[in-house]
Every structure is written in structure tokens, then in C-alpha cells.
Design a protein around this nucleic acid. Sequence first.
DNA 1: CGAATGGTTATCTTATATGATAACAATTTT
DNA 2: AAAATTGTTATCATATAAGATAACCATTCG
Lengths: 77, 77
Amino acid sequence: MYPGLTMNEANYLKRIGKNIKELRNSKGISQAELAYRCNLEKANLSRLESGNTNPTIKTLFKISKALKVNIIDLLKM
Amino acid sequence: MYPGLTMNEANYLKRIGKNIKELRNSKGISQAELAYRCNLEKANLSRLESGNTNPTIKTLFKISKALKVNIIDLLKM
DNA sequence: CGAATGGTTATCTTATATGATAACAATTTT
DNA sequence: AAAATTGTTATCATATAAGATAACCATTCG
């Protein structure tokens, strides 16, 4: 998706959450396990995956490392 | 750059700041002008460009829209 | 020269991401 | 069936991103 057309901030947060959930499921690990690997609270990861919070770059960076993917993969629109 | 090798969080924040600054300069606009277009404080944008803060996705999303680039361009390592 | 412009840094306030914990429902497992 | 697992949501505390403002320093421009 190209920047600026239909995507708004709220939808983008939802998209990022879905990206994380898909990548996590493709690796076959639970939220609790991923949260542990990232040093994040499992409640926090649940909030992120449901798009109900506005994550910082550091948080996404940690998740990308734990999933062994490029951070870009979390941010695709 | 591939995830997980040499890049740490602090260096990544610096890199993002440099990316923003380069893109902004390539468009020939000042920090004050970009901050205005993003509805950000110019002091905040200065902090971001110097890598001294940990931006949220919403903030980067606003900047990418104002610069008319893909958010991925701000996040390249 | 003084006045504007561009960027940085400091301080304080406000909003909110995250930590920490708990309770809950729905599955899955034994 | 009971117990464990998985994910969600709620609450409260804490840390910090961002707002708001101001004071700087350099540089540019009149």
C-alpha cells in the first residue's frame, strides 16, 4: 500500500497487530512465549496484537528480534 | 541490514533520526515546517532527529505522510 | 549592524505505553 | 471431569513520549 491514501493511524495499528499475530502463529508460539522472549508483559502483547495501543519503535524492535524477522515485516501495510 | 546482528536499540533510534533528517533535507524543508505539517512540536522533531527519544508508530506515521514517503523509508537500517 | 531563520537543549506538564497483577472465558489436555 | 493452556480485559502504578514554552547559538539576510 502506498502512503497517504486510505490508511489512517487507527487502521495502521490494527494492521501492525495482525502482522505480529500472523508471524507469531507462523512460528507456532504463544503470546506468553513471545512476550517472555521480548521481556514484555503478556497483557501488553495482547493489547498490541489487537491494535489497542500505539507501540514505540523499541517495542517493535524487540518483537522483530524475538521473531527473527526484519522490523519492516511488522510494519507492512 | 538483517535483524539481530549488530544493531541495538539505541543505534536504531539514531538511524531513524538520520533517515528522517535526510529525507526532510532532500525535500528542502525546515524542521519547523515539517513539525507544522505533522502537528508536532519542533522541539520534539529535533529530539527525534537526534535519536534522543523512542518514537511511537503514530508519530512516524505522521512524519511519513508529511514527507510523502512510505513509513518503511524512515525505518530502514 | 540588527532581525530573522534553523536547530538544539532545558524545564515543566500532560497524555499514554508499559509493567504488574488479577480475573475471566474458551479451548485443549490428561 | 478437572487441570492446564491461551488469549482478553480491567485496574492501578510507573516510566516516558510528546506538548508547551523558553533560552540559546549559529547562520543568513535585510
